[in-house]
Design a binder for these strands. Structure first.
Lengths: 216, 216
DNA sequence: CGCACACTACACCGTGCAGTGTAGTAGCTG
DNA sequence: CAGCTACTACACTGCACGGTGTAGTGTGCG
């Protein structure tokens, strides 16, 4: 029912099931919290025997960590793609309105990715959940890399005379705060999407950012 | 050792213990997550017998809710006080620099309140934890009221020609996002305070807000 | 004194769950 | 066919924890 093989029938095992387990566990963990989800529930959700879950991941903790790195990578990929798509290296952007347009598009892209896919929200929510609990907090999601890259672009626009700041990293933080962070804070659960509201949040946030940081 | 009676010895019971239990439970819940804290641990933390905890609150869930409303009220009070202190009704504020100064002071006040007291962070963290799990989500912290009040002040400044927006509520959201939300997101656990960093975050956030929303 | 009250210490129950061990099955390969 | 791999179904252990019941202790009060 679930495992519609993209490959015909060669090897629907292993990777396929691994993915299913990760997805099921991620959804359950995000929705109910790690502690309240039993491994039986995970197994049931993935339509897999509990024993298989343990054979694959060995441990609830390790399953959780696998989800975390999975979500982290997925998030990174999405964010980097969006960055390259909307703010490519070869900058044809020469005016502030063009810049606002690009930033808005970027924000909307990221925002809808959050709402649409559970991966990002999962990363956020799970890290938030676990950041409190695990003393070993170097499993943190690598938002930093993306933010650094984004800060780099901002620095470029500063050099180009479109933006005005002596602290691009801070500007990047403010952009994320005004868009994704705010939207996420308004609606952490990716259940009721309300994509229009998210979209509007992104437009507003990008606009505020431009007003704050554009040269005048 | 702990119960140093502010009143000499009249009645150190009841309310005193209730407070102790709430405080201990709040700290533990925030730091480790509700599910991972046993009622025995709460009792031990409050230096009280487990039975007393149950006699007072009846239930883990109800104890949790008590903490939530407690933190919510405390937060509300703090925020309203800060609002009235830094942006009083009788507005002697007539220039944008004055406004920035007031907003910065407000942000710093709120920010340090977050870091200093566990109540606010508790509210944030616990709501975040539970928002995912409980389907009955009307135990939400009443940030709304504060934000409405703040939006009202912003609207006044718009009328006074100092700020420029047709959506004060959104502006209020952006202010919170740039200051508290960002700071909180950078450091959710109120363990390592780093008050200087928080202070700087607040200054930067308020500055960005003014740049975005001040008339020009 | 006895009574009530607030509280503690402690034993106790039931349950849910992480994690394991094992027997059995289906499919592939030689 | 045997043998291997991947997996399932299921039974089972041990433990932690929520919640309760109770006997005992100290304190104030009539």
């Amino acid at each position: 029912m679930s495992t519609v093989g993209t490959e015909k029938s060669v090897r629907e095992g292993s990777l396929e099931k691994r993915k299913a387990i990760l997805a099921a566990a991620r959804d359950l963990f995000v929705r109910q919290g790690v502690d309240r989800v039993s491994m039986d529930a995970v197994a049931a959700g993935a339509e897999v025997s509990k024993r298989t879950v343990y054979d694959y991941f060995g441990d609830k903790r390790r399953l959780f960590l696998a989800i975390l790195t999975d979500a982290s990578q997925s998030l990174m990929a999405t964010a980097c793609r969006a960055l390259d798509e909307h703010l490519p290296e070869g900058a044809q952007i020469t005016t502030v309105p063009q810049l606002e347009k690009a930033f808005t598009a970027l924000a909307i892209d990221l925002g809808t990715s959050i709402v649409g896919s559970a991966d990002y929200a999962a990363g956020f929510a799970l890290v938030a959940q676990e950041r409190l609990r695990t003393p070993t907090t170097e499993d943190d999601i690598a938002t930093v890399v993306v933010e650094e890259a984004f800060a780099k672009r901002i620095a470029d626009f500063v050099d180009a005379g479109l933006l005005d700041t002596d602290n691009p990293r801070l500007a990047a933080d403010h952009f994320f705060a005004l868009t994704i962070l705010l939207a996420y804070n308004r609606q952490p659960v990716p259940a009721n999407p309300a994509p229009d509201k998210v979209r509007q949040s992104m437009i507003d946030g990008a606009h505020a950012f431009i007003r704050a940081y554009a040269t005048r």
